[in-house]
Amino acid sequence: MSSEAVAPVIQRGSWALTARRLLRDPASIAALGFIVIVVAFAILAPAFEAWTGHSAIAQYRDTGMSAMGLPAAPNREFVFGTDHLGRDVLVRLAFGARVSLLVGVLAALCASVVGVTVGMTAGYFGGRVDSVLSRMMDLVMSVPFLLCALALVSVFGPSLQLSIGVIVFFSWTTMGRVIRGQVISLRRQEFVEAGRSLGAGPLSIMFVDILPNLSVPIIVYTTMMIPGSIVFEATLSFLGMGIVPPAPSWGGMLADAANNSLYLVAWWLVFIPGTALLLTTLAFNIFGDSLRDALDPKGRPRPRAKRKGVQR
């Protein structure tokens, strides 16, 4: 073709466009901002420890508790108050954030790897392979997770690795189903047939042709799985099946507050870890949602503008 004049209009790349769409949405900026703050909070946990001079597991019975043995309300020394053993809630919250984020991100990543692998295999090969793998996903979905988790913990004893394992086992199926559906429709596209006609094998087609086209659902669903995993971990810790005390975790802190109805006299023991949990999951959910809208703007309803009047 003849040489074409370069258009003065800027053709933006897809990532630049996505970033622009994200930044135009105030909810996603707020969510992203909060996520950054939580991550910083978790990373800086030792700094908080040094700054307050309080260890996460040390009990400050003299300064952090009243003569009656009740926890101290938020004050100058203990910004977020202390818990029933006189431990600093602020420092525990910071170390708890590490656990939440670590479990949340790690479990979501592992679950998406498993989900993508199984979903892609089922979707690409179809037939018997698909039937077996799909029934397997149905089976996993129909197992009552708390019962199963209880049984596992009583056999192996609570640990971080076990919580991650349990969370991954119960959360990969959503990703698997989404990917399977996507691959089934992608498999019929002409570029896959073009790959086959060039002599490409199934592995080459799956990884070179299909996988790059799955990047949007993978990114979005992994982001959306993080808050689920965080809540999952908090649930396990709340039931005493996750992180081993005295190591702090948000679910464990909530459990401590619930014991002996301590929250009746010390509201901050529920309010602070509860709010942290709520805002973190909310932020990841909102961010995941707006990420989907930004990456795939077709699914979003367009704003309706009024027809402009006659102008000459």
């Binding site: 002409e190 047939e193 073009a194 006609s197 060039l198």
Partner: peptide
């Protein structure tokens, strides 16, 4: 070798054309 009808569907939208033509 095949050349397909739909020029939009026959090329993988996520790959660069250098990689697409170099596929064989």
């Amino acid at each position: 070798q095949l050349v397909f009808q739909n020029p939009y569907g026959a090329l993988n939208p996520r790959r660069r054309i250098g990689a697409i033509i170099g596929d064989p």
